[in-house]
């Protein structure tokens, strides 16, 4: 059980890191969620709070840079 918990916690932490270093992508994604307004409103509030937090911390869009590099290497 402990090992499964460690797996889950590490995966969750990695997703938080992905969010932190992925620019505006999570904001775009949140708008596409099939949620009723009652759930969507607080979720969007949280997403925008996170977006402001990222902006305040000045985190770079590393995901976007990786994406550009990979696409350039593949000639896309």
């Amino acid at each position: 059980m402990a090992r499964n918990l460690r797996f889950f916690l590490t995966l969750s932490a990695a997703l938080v890191l992905l969010w932190a270093f992925s620019g505006e992508r999570i904001v775009d994604w949140a708008f596409e969620l099939p949620l009723p307004d009652a759930l969507m409103d607080p979720l969007l509030d949280a997403v925008f709070w996170g977006k402001d937090l990222k902006a305040a911390m000045g985190l770079p869009d590393l995901f976007g840079a990786l994406r550009d590099t990979l696409h350039r290497l593949a000639g896309l």
């Binding site: 797996f7 995966l11 990695a14 997703l15």
Partner: peptide, 15 residues
């Protein structure tokens, strides 16, 4: 270790 398994999965997904 499970942490390495999870990181491998996350890194692969990001790629």
């Amino acid at each position: 270790a499970p942490e390495v398994q999870a990181l491998a999965l996350a890194a692969g997904l990001i790629f």
